[in-house]
């Protein structure tokens, strides 16, 4: 067992875990953050995607020892927490508006891949969006409305605040 400390969605976490425990299992089982999903366990489907120090990664391929001292963001950390509840971010709202989530199992990973794309200044260009989510498999949507949602969020993000 190794002592591992990191930030999840802005909150410090300290736990004892085997160093080779998958980050996915740490999040889901040790921390109860079940928004992160397992689809294949081999880095093919992207359902377990999280943001690690600003990069989107497959949490099934990350050993816990490598997240010590790092910053992690999961789907639970996307909406803004206010005293009156959570407010969806522009991307989540766009998924809701376009119908980007169907069965929802790929949605958390898809949102995080898209979040990184947008945070890096990604725009509404369809080919660029498709490349940004090529590591996230979806079997429900044909990707159409997911691409639409990310493009919409990119447009929304470009509008001046308050518009």
């Amino acid at each position: 067992m190794t002592a591992i400390r990191f930030l999840v969605n802005g909150a410090p976490v300290e736990l004892e875990a085997p160093g080779m425990r998958r980050l996915l299992d740490v999040l889901r089982e040790d921390l109860g953050l079940t928004g992160t999903k397992e689809g294949c366990g081999e880095g093919e489907c992207g359902a377990c995607s999280v943001i690690l120090d600003g990069d989107v990664v497959d949490s099934c391929l990350i050993p816990a020892c490598q997240v010590d001292g790092r910053i992690i963001r999961t789907v639970e950390g996307l909406a803004a927490l206010t005293p009156d509840g959570r407010i969806l971010d522009d991307l989540q709202a766009a998924f809701l508006a376009t119908g980007g989530a169907q069965c929802g199992i790929c949605t958390p990973g898809m949102l995080l891949a898209a979040r990184v794309y947008l945070d890096a200044g990604g725009g509404p260009d369809e080919d660029a969006i498709r490349e940004a989510i090529a590591g996230n498999l979806c079997r429900c949507t044909g990707y159409t409305k997911i691409v639409e949602a990310i493009a919409l969020a990119a447009e929304t993000g470009r509008r001046p605040a308050g518009a």
Partner: peptide, 20 residues
């Protein structure tokens, strides 16, 4: 809007493996 959309977008939705 999709009924369970907000739950699916926030990670609140509970699939079988999420149940404790």
């Amino acid at each position: 809007i999709r009924r369970e959309g907000p739950a699916k977008l926030t990670g609140d939705a509970r699939y079988a493996d999420d149940l404790v």
